[in-house]
């Protein structure tokens, strides 16, 4: 039963993280802002609407959002949250999870290109270019933890991180957390890499690819984005917060609190920083790679 808990928590509360981010940004801007449950209202509104499809699109465009959401849910099956075990775990599921996330990106990109719009093609091109830099950073970050804990199973890997490991390998783990955090910002289209609140600017990356989606399909995309935020966030929180007491209440509370803190940090970063120029984004991602690689090398 406890193995079902994490996917259920994620499915229920993933949009709440987006709400916390918006609320934090509103607080820093001196506004009251929308309520934290606003993303739920937005999703409900989108799910009530009908979708409009361009005549130039094919089944690829229609399938993209549904496949993206399915992959997001599939990822939750392999994902532990601190001491809370994953539903399914096997040797090498770490690599499988990374490939699932890549598959999610692939279908988003191919659905964008299916519209035939040059604007969406541009976004797709940017997404793939930046992911080519973000993925090695993510790989090296998880490889560092795998080397420290001696396992390639995500469940045992996150479970194996404790205070003793942090005390003996503080340098490596801190570098990996910083590297993964930068990847997290890029993968979730957050400032300073991208701004999810913009829709008509030439510098945007992710939002440009989903401009033609509407109604239920756009709802799927938004919900999948919320799940992706939770998925990558739970990996970072699982590494950064070594609370492994064995008491489910304390462990789950610590992880949930960690996710809320992560959302607040994203909100703060989005409030105090400007978006980077597009040409500087690769430098940031190379920086993330370097953090992860140094973390891997110095242990």
């Amino acid at each position: 039963m406890i193995r079902l808990l994490h996917p259920l928590l994620a499915l229920l509360f993933a949009p709440l993280l987006q709400g916390i981010i918006m609320k934090t940004q509103a607080f820093f801007a001196g506004r009251q802002g929308p309520p934290v449950i606003q993303p739920y209202h937005d999703l409900a509104r989108l799910f009530r609407k009908g979708a409009v499809f361009s005549e130039t699109t094919t089944w690829v465009f229609r399938a993209g959002p549904a496949i993206g959401l399915t992959i997001g849910i599939l990822c939750l099956i392999f994902l532990p949250l601190g001491n809370m075990p994953a539903m399914v775990s096997f040797h090498g599921d770490l690599i499988f999870l990374i490939y699932l996330l890549s598959l999610h990106r692939f279908f988003t990109v191919i659905a964008a290109m299916d519209t035939g719009s040059a604007f969406e093609g541009m976004g797709a091109s940017r997404e793939m270019s930046f992911s080519a830099l973000a993925e090695p950073a993510f790989f090296f970050g998880l490889a560092t933890i795998a080397r420290l804990t001696g396992t390639l199973s995500l469940d045992q890997l996150i479970h194996g991180i404790n205070i003793n490991l942090w005390q003996t390998h503080v340098g490596s783990l801190a570098l990996v957390v910083v590297g993964l955090f930068l990847v997290f910002l890029a993968e979730n289209s957050r400032i300073p890499v991208d701004d999810p609140s913009t829709h008509l600017e030439l510098t945007m990356i992710h939002e440009v690819m989903v401009l033609d989606h509407s109604g239920v399909d756009f709802g799927f995309i938004e919900y999948a984005a919320a799940l992706k935020l939770w998925i990558l966030g739970s990996v970072i929180v699982g590494i950064a917060i070594p609370v492994r007491t064995g008491i489910p209440g304390i462990d789950i509370s610590a992880m949930c609190l960690g996710l809320i803190c992560l959302a607040v940090i994203i909100g703060i970063v989005g409030s105090i920083m400007a978006r980077l120029r597009l040409l500087q984004v690769p430098q940031l991602l190379v920086g993330a790679c370097i953090f992860s690689v140094i973390g891997f090398l110095i242990q």
């Binding site: 503080v170 340098g171 570098l175 370097i290 140094i294 110095i298």
Partner: peptide
């Protein structure tokens, strides 16, 4: 010790960039 040396290494990386 490790922490300070890692900081020195990171600053070297920053200088290269």
């Amino acid at each position: 010790f490790d922490f300070l040396i890692v900081l020195v290494i990171l600053i070297n990386v920053r200088l290269l960039a």
